[in-house]
Design a protein around this nucleic acid. Structure first.
Length: 350
DNA sequence: AATACGGGGAG
DNA sequence: CTCCCAGTATT
C-alpha cells in the first residue's frame, strides 16, 4: 500500500531534481572517497555547516592513503567545531583498513561497507547509490519525513523497527535507473521543500498530487516522533590558568564525551573563589593574581554544562598531565566549542 | 530497546 | 528556550 503511493514519486522527483538540485562540492566531482567523507560529515549535520570543513578536508587529505597516514592531532584540529568527534577517528580507522585490506579501494557491497567503522545503514546506501550506481536506499531524517508525509504514516520515526519498515518501502519505491540521483533528490526535497519545521512548501513539491499528508492537511504534525528524554545539567568550575604567556590545558580521556580533545582544567561543582583557591593548592599551583570570574553555558544533545570560570595568574606546574601551551601551540590543538568563551578570554589577555 | 555522542541554525 | 539536522556505536 505505502509502496504503491511512494512509487509515484520517482519520475516527478527526478524531473524536479534535474531542475532544482543543489550545487554542492561533493557533487561536482564524484568519487567514492569524496562521497564517503561528505556523507560522514553530513551525519546529523546541516549542509551549510559541512561546506567549509569539506573543502579544507579535501585539501588536507586528498586521498584515502593521505587520510590513513595523517597526524591524528591535525585531523582532530581540522574537525574542531564540527562535533561528533568519533566520526573523525572512525574515518581514519576505516581509511587504514581500506589501505591495508582493500588496496586503497572501496568495497562495493553493503556488507563490507557497513563493516567499516562509522559506516552504518544510511551511509552504506548513500555510497553504493551515489558512487557505485546501486539501487540501495539511503534513509535519513529527510527521507523519513518525506515518506511519513507522503504516505500519511503515523509510525514513530524514532523507533528503530519502524525505520526498517520505512527503509523497505523506499527500497521498493526507488528508481532503478538513477539510484544515486533518486537518493540525493529525496535529500534536496526534504531540505528545501518538505521542510522539517514550519510549513512545507507543498505548492512546489513534485509529490503534491498524491501526498496523503497534504490531502489530509496534517503536514505539520508529521512525522510522528516520540518525546525525547530530558537532559541533565552538570555544573563545572573551569580554570583559565596563566603562567607567563602559557595557559594550562589537559587532554580528555580517549573515550566518552569529546574524547581526546583538549580542555582547560576543571572540576565538578560551582566553586567560590575560596574553594577554587583550595583546589589550586591541591593541584600544587600558587595563584599570584585573580583576574576575572566568568560564567558560560553549553548545551549538548543529552547534557547541559553550567560553567564558572576563573582567570588566574599562577606559579607552579600543576599535575604532570597538564600542558602549558602558548598561543601558537594552542592554535594547533582541538579545543571543543563548549570552551569557546574561555578560549576567547585567554586570547584577549594576550 | 535505550542511550551516548556536538554543534549550530531556525522558529 | 525547543527542535532537529545527509546517523552510528555501544550496552
Amino acid at each position: 500500500m505505502e509502496e504503491q503511493i511512494l512509487k509515484q514519486l520517482a519520475q516527478p522527483l527526478l524531473a524536479w531534481y534535474d531542475i532544482h538540485r543543489r550545487i554542492l562540492p561533493w557533487r561536482e566531482e564524484v568519487s567514492p572517497y569524496r562521497t564517503w567523507v561528505s556523507e560522514i560529515m553530513l551525519q546529523q549535520t546541516r549542509v551549510a555547516a559541512v561546506l567549509p570543513y569539506f573543502q579544507r578536508f579535501m585539501e588536507a587529505f586528498p586521498t584515502v592513503e593521505a587520510l590513513a597516514q595523517a597526524d591524528t592531532e591535525r585531523l582532530m584540529k581540522l574537525w574542531e567545531g564540527l562535533g561528533y568527534y568519533s566520526r573523525a577517528r572512525n574515518l581514519q580507522k576505516a581509511a587504514r583498513i581500506l589501505t591495508e585490506q582493500y588496496g586503497g579501494r572501496f568495497p562495493e557491497t553493503y556488507r563490507e561497507l557497513t563493516a567499516l567503522p562509522g559506516i552504518g545503514d544510511y551511509t552504506a546506501g548513500a555510497i553504493l547509490s551515489i558512487a557505485f550506481g546501486q539501487a540501495v536506499p539511503a534513509v535519513d531524517g529527510n527521507v523519513l519525513r518525506l515518506a511519513a508525509r507522503i504516505t500519511g504514516s503515523r509510525l514513530d520515526v524514532l523507533d528503530a523497527k519502524n525505520r526498517k519498515i520505512f527503509r523497505s518501502w523506499m527500497a521498493a519505491a526507488m528508481s532503478q535507473e538513477r539510484p544515486g540521483a533518486y537518493n540525493q533528490a529525496l535529500m534536496d526535497l526534504g531540505a528545501t521543500v518538505c521542510l522539517p519545521s514550519g510549513a512545507p512548501l507543498c505548492g512546489d513539491c513534485p509529490a503534491g498530487d498524491f501526498c496523503i499528508a497534504r490531502q489530509e492537511g496534517c503536514q505539520a504534525r508529521l512525522p510522528v516522533r516520540s518525546p525525547k528524554r530530558e537532559k541533565r545539567t552538570e555544573h563545572l568550575t573551569v580554570f583559565l590558568l596563566r603562567r607567563g604567556a602559557a595557559a594550562a590545558l589537559r587532554q580528555r580521556p580517549d573515550t566518552g564525551l569529546l574524547a581526546g580533545l583538549w580542555e582547560y582544567p576543571h572540576v565538578p561543582g560551582t566553586l567560590t573563589e575560596a574553594e577554587a583557591a583550595r583546589q589550586l593548592q591541591m593541584w600544587g599551583v600558587n595563584p599570584t593574581k585573580w583576574r576575572k570570574k566568568l560564567s558560560a553555558r553549553h548545551i549538548f544533545t543529552h547534557v547541559r554544562w553550567e560553567m564558572t570560570g576563573y582567570v588566574v595568574e599562577v606559579d607552579g606546574l600543576g599535575p604532570g598531565d597538564w600542558l602549558w601551551a602558548e598561543a601558537q601551540q594552542r592554535e594547533r590543538l582541538a579545543i571543543p566549542s563548549a570552551f569557546e568563551k574561555f578560549t576567547a578570554e585567554l586570547k584577549e589577555g594576550e
